[in-house]
Simulated assay, not measured.
Amino acid sequence: MSGKFKITSSHWVIVVALLAAGFACFLLVEPYINSIVMAFIISLLMFPIHDKIETRVGSQKNLASLLSCMLLSVIIVLPLLFVFAAIVQQGSTFSQNVYQWVTQGGIQALFEHPWIVKALSIINTYLPFDEIKPQEVGQKIAQFATSFGTNLVGISAKILGDATSFLLNFFLMLFVLFFLLRDHDTIIAAIRHILPLSRSQEDKLLEEVEKVSKSAVMGSFLTAIAQGFAGGIGMWLAGFQGLFWGTMMGFASFIPVVGTALIWIPAAIYLFLTGDTTWGIFLTIWSIAVVGSIDNLLRPFLMQGSAGMNTLMIFFSLLGGLHLFGLIGLIYGPLIFAITMVLFNIYEEEFKHFLDEQDQN
């Protein structure tokens, strides 16, 4: 460089105005930020496939991006529609079975089971709760089962609304993804030009964002799919609706600490209480040995590229992200941690001389 860059008051005016305009733009796109972020992350995952498509169609970037988006739609939307229809059918069957079981005296027979009688006796004797009376609990469960038909209408309407919202967000994400794939090189070049960092620092930051985005998606969502698939097989073998409960276990796997145990423990207890001891033992062993091992082995393996974060940091990034942002926080949390660590490394490099002097004093 021929000379030092000097910051003037006009520069500060431009920076402040730019920050204010940037914040206003953020407010405009905030309702759609999740779709934009997901489009960005999926573009990173899809770019190797898109690159091959682009090579085959030549210089027609619009056609290549369109084909990539259509391929993604076929991969995601069609299986989801099939799974959603099966879940609604199996969920409806399950609710009807529960209603019949309760109204035909199943709940009374359950409370007469020796294990339940003994457990209630211990609870009423030693724990500081009001006395639990089986008749009152049975009445409340029966009332819930009686009103379940009415509730099911409301639940179905909510599911339909959520599905409609999902489709709208998905098509918005596809729209953004189209431009991200088509203009990938231009966007990266613009980001590099704007960032006030050296080329090596930009490479490190962009590389880490890409790596963590991929590992967060793989670590969270692929683990959920794998656990849901394995759990569904176990539940189906034990006599439950496999697809419905497998899907529920997939969603439950996102819950920290508890995870899929939220589903399989009550199912195993039910099997023990109804006399299916063999299947209860099978489901317990299967859920611990197979479903549990997926979470313990697959998730850390898929997320091992997360900016050198150890298991504790990954856990808190997932837990905090889930708490602050909801399900999308499983991606945001590790991403925020990773960017912070990369920026901290850049800070260490830039101020290395000063920090070394501080250590010596």
Rank of each mutant, 00 (worst) to 15 (best):
G161E: 04
I132R: 13
A86Y: 04
S92F: 08
N124Y: 10
Q89T: 04
V153F: 06
W101S: 02
E136D: 11
S156N: 08
V98G: 01
L167M: 09
V83G: 00
Q135G: 03
F94Y: 15
G138T: 02
K118Q: 11
L127G: 03
E112K: 07
T103Q: 14
S95G: 06
G105S: 12
F166K: 07
K118Y: 10
A142Y: 03
Q139M: 12
A163I: 07
I132Q: 10
L80R: 04
L81C: 10
T93V: 13
V88W: 09
L110W: 04
N169E: 07
D162Q: 14
K118I: 03
V98C: 03
T146M: 08
F171M: 10
E112T: 13
H113L: 05
E136N: 08
Q108N: 14
F170V: 01
F111S: 03
F94C: 05
T146K: 12
A119F: 12
G106I: 03
I155T: 05
E112S: 13
L80V: 06
W101H: 02
G105K: 08
T125W: 13
F148K: 03
N151W: 05
F111E: 03
T103N: 08
F171K: 02
Y99D: 08
L120S: 06
V137K: 05
K133L: 15
V102T: 01
V117T: 11
P114S: 08
T164N: 12
K118G: 00
A142G: 09
T93H: 12
F170A: 04
L120G: 05
G161A: 06
G161H: 02
T164C: 15
A145V: 11
I159W: 02
W101C: 01
G161V: 04
G149F: 03
E131T: 13
T164E: 13
V117H: 06
T164A: 15
T164I: 14
Y99G: 01
V153H: 01
L152C: 04
V137N: 00
Q104V: 05
Q100N: 11
L160S: 05
G91Y: 00
